[in-house]
Every structure is written in structure tokens, then in C-alpha cells.
Amino acid sequence: MKIAFYGSSLLSSYWNGAATYYRGILRALAAHGHEICFYEPDAFDRQSHRDIEPPSWCRVVVYEASPEGVRRALDGMRGADVVVKASGVGYADDALLAGVLAARQAQSLCLFWDVDAPATLADIRNDPEHPLRRALGSLDLVLTYGGGAPVTDAYRGFGARDCIPIYNALDPATHHPVPPDARYVSDLSFLGNRLPDREARVEAFLLRPAAQLADRRFLLGGSGWADKPCSGNVVKLGHVATGTHNALNASAGVVLNISRDSMARMGFSPATRVFEVAGSGACLMTDHWDGLAVFLEPGREVLVVRDGADVVEALRSLDPRDAARIGQAGLARILREHTYDRRAVQLDRLLVDTLAAKRAGLPA
């Protein structure tokens, strides 16, 4: 199949948490013989912060962030069997969705792929005239990268024909165990951009515990934290390129995942970092969210904390040998059940079957 995919960025993870998800799932999907073209706007200074060059398994078109650039990008969907409009492209999202629907061909699939379903659903729930809400009945399928039944039921309730989660996973070729790097040695590290519905949880799960553990070293990675008040034992790293994630994970006693408010409330929304950290063999600590045990077993494959006091207690009591055992158990589970190659088998079958069913129902 020919697939035209309109997303935020495949080439850059700068202010773009979906980058590793796009790379992992599309690389694995391309291995099934599909021809993929990814269209991304030249926006938010991402092109000067590229993590990768255009890969062999996907053609990438960078278009100008302007109405004319959008129009030219939409020309690329002609002849595609599957057209995907992702959430959070970041420039002219509504115009892109309208353009995709206007230019769609009867024999092709038209999908919306939501990489931040809790936030998207909150937007359309509060706005009956939201362009996506009005468009759902015209789309062939909605895909999400998480959310479970609360998300799929909500999308169907708003008029989607169907909604299927394609969960985050691990690309072992990109995220894997490496030796520690002295620059990133810490008792606990966290990597995540500063976002409104994450900041308060970072304060609760990282910054306040750090202030109570003055003898421990904490690393805070991600964009936007430069002016955030922190205790002196918190080292701010700024943006951390994807190629550095393995070293960052491998060098910490514990790596912390902190869900955004909306994803924690929705549940069944494992961030890419959950799989990246476990895939590196590091000891993962995460805040609690419903559905976690579907992916990793609490206490054996991942540490689970419900508040900052749990973080403090865990760091004070955790033996390095126990941390290593948790890291290895998590790595084994992720490699066994949660790789992008496994997700792509599911996605390939879904797209092939859905396209065949649609074409079988078209007039001769």
C-alpha cells in the first residue's frame, strides 16, 4: 500500500514527543512492504534540531508552514491507498484535516491518528463545533497510541466508525542497553518537556523529593525547564536528543516516568519513555495509572509510586541489586511482548483488512 502520513515531525524530537513513536511504528510497518511518505511542516525550529536524517524506509517531505505549503503537501496524497492525519501537527491542523477530507478518493482509507487522545477528547468534548468532532463520521478509522476503553468508547460515542489503540512500544535497534556515561550518573533521572498538565506532577514526583534528599543527585531533562526553581541537587539538561537517551537511562540508579495529568486520569496510556527505559535495561519507576499491569508487572518489572513520599521512600530503601533485577525483568518483558515489530503486525492486518472491506463495498 501507499501511505501518506501528515504528522508533526519524523526527523526531529525537538518539542515533539511523538517522534520516537512515529519512527518505531512506521519503520516496522514499512518492513511489511508498504511505501510511506511522511509530510511534516518546517515549524518550531525542529529542522535545525534534527535527530535523524531521512531514513531509507520512508520518504520525508518537509513543507513550508504557510497556506501554500499546506496546499502543496496535500497534493501528495493523490494516489495513496491510506491517508493519515495525525493529531498535534502544530501548524494548520484544522486546515490539514479539512484538506485531507476534501481531497480524499473513494477507494482510499482516511484515518485520524491521535497521539494525545486525552487532550484531544477534552477539546472536542467541550466544543460541539470542533472540526474534528464534526469530521469523525466521515473518517474510516481513528487510531490512538493509548487510552484503552475510556478512549475508544469516547471516540465511538462522538461518532467515530471505529477506534483502535496502537500502543507505544520499543524499537530495540534504537533503544537498548549501553554502558553508563559519567556525564549522566544520577540517583534518579527524568526526561520530559515542560507542559502545563505535566508541571505540577513533576513538582510533586521529582522536585519536592529532590529537596528532601539533598545528598542525592537528580537529572531533569527536556525543553522548557531552564527557569524552573529547583534545589541545588537537580541538574537541568535541556533538550536531550534521541541518540543520547540510552546513555541517560543506563547511567541512572532509577529512571522516573511521570504521566501528564490527562493521561494519568485516562489510564492505559504508556508514554514512549516507559518502553525506552525498560528497553535500556534500566530500573523504571512510574507514577500509577490504570492499565499499567498490561505492559509491566508492578514490583517485579517496574516500580510504582503514587506520590512524592513514595519516591523518597523508594530511593532510600532500594538496593542497587534489586534495581538491576527490576531493570532486567522489565527488559525481558518488553522484548517479549511490546516491540514495534509486534505492533506493526497488528497494524498491517488492520489496514489491509479495512481497505479491502471498503473497496469491496464500493460500486463496481
Rank of each mutant, 00 (worst) to 15 (best):
P41H: 05
D307H: 03
A324R: 13
P172L: 05
S231W: 12
D261N: 08
L121R: 11
M285E: 10
G279I: 02
F158T: 04
L220W: 11
D140C: 02
L170S: 07
T286A: 14
L74R: 03
V235H: 11
G243H: 03
L303Q: 11
G291V: 09
H338P: 03
A86G: 02
A154Y: 09
P298F: 05
G291C: 08
L220E: 03
A344H: 01
F295T: 04
R273C: 04
L101E: 06
L97I: 07
P229W: 05
D75K: 04
P118Q: 00
P150C: 10
V254F: 11
N246K: 07
S269A: 15
S12L: 01
G238L: 03
G146A: 14
V352W: 08
L191N: 08
N249Y: 11
Y63K: 05
L96W: 05
Q107P: 00
T144M: 07
S8T: 10
V345E: 10
I36E: 04
A360G: 05
V82K: 15
D215N: 12
I124Y: 01
D81A: 14
L315C: 06
A95E: 15
R156H: 12
V100N: 10
I258F: 07
A102I: 04
G281C: 14
A329M: 06
S12N: 06
F190E: 12
R343C: 06
D75A: 09
A160I: 14
L29C: 09
C230V: 15
R198S: 08
G267F: 14
A160R: 13
D94C: 10
A271Q: 01
R78L: 04
V304Y: 07
V255E: 06
Q328A: 15
P270Y: 15
V240A: 07
Y14D: 00
V234L: 07
A214Q: 15
A252E: 02
Y167G: 02
P180I: 14
S48Q: 14
R325H: 08
A282H: 08
A241R: 15
K358S: 08
A169D: 05
G253T: 08
F112G: 13
N233H: 07
G17R: 04
L109D: 13
L296R: 04
P172R: 05
L237S: 01
L318P: 15
F190M: 13
G148D: 07
L303A: 13
D227N: 09
E68S: 03
F205R: 01
P118H: 04
G281T: 14
E337A: 13
